[in-house]
Amino acid sequence: MLQMKGISKVYRADVVQTSALRDFNLTVDEGEFVAVTGPSGSGKTTFLNIAGLLEAFDAGSYLLDGQDVSRLGDDARSRIRNEKIGFIFQGFNLIADLNVFDNVDVPLRYRGFRAAERAQRIQRALELVGLASRGKHLPSQLSGGQQQRVAIARALAGEPRFLLADEPTGNLDSVMARQVMELLEEINGRGTTIIMVTHDPELARRARRNVHMLDGQVTDFTEFEAAIRVRETRAAAGA
């Protein structure tokens, strides 16, 4: 489904160079639910951007759904993003001036579906996230959890092969975060591959597989687990 080999990405600003990914290797199979964790600055977002074809990389190879995407032009990358990838952002990234229905409609319009089909897909996606009755609402009229569910509906409406979620519960309280996670698990249960970037170990545990990143590379996850246990033990002792 997703195969990255030896990916590197360097950001250059004037004389400063920052290596965000270094010889990054990751394979994700179809139907997996992978959580990518790591501290701030470890390269999680860069990985997500490259995985989602939001930005280019400097070296390595990347096969997405069996297709080498490293040399694709901008239009072809846009098409793949539109057809195969669904995005869920930490800040929801809903368009404030559009109602729920029109927000979910955004990627479908770029897909070129006819109005009737778009309406059908939007309805289905909103039903899946439990917001079928809120089509006319503006994002500002919804709670954070509801907004994220709208974003999930938007990501799902085009029936993508996999979802990329960037801290999907980062802006939600624990109750809403649990609801969103349950929804993602349900979506994964239906066969959609999910890669979720998070720094929340609790959420990461709910994924089927965890990948820990440090300094732009995948590290041994057992070290991460051990670190979490140490932190939890200290916390319990402190309490």
Partner: peptide, 16 residues
């Protein structure tokens, strides 16, 4: 800017 970036992420081409 953020909205435009989001539209691009969701599949909008530059021409769109």
């Amino acid at each position: 800017r953020k909205q435009i970036g989001t539209r691009r992420a969701l599949g909008a081409r530059r021409s769109d």
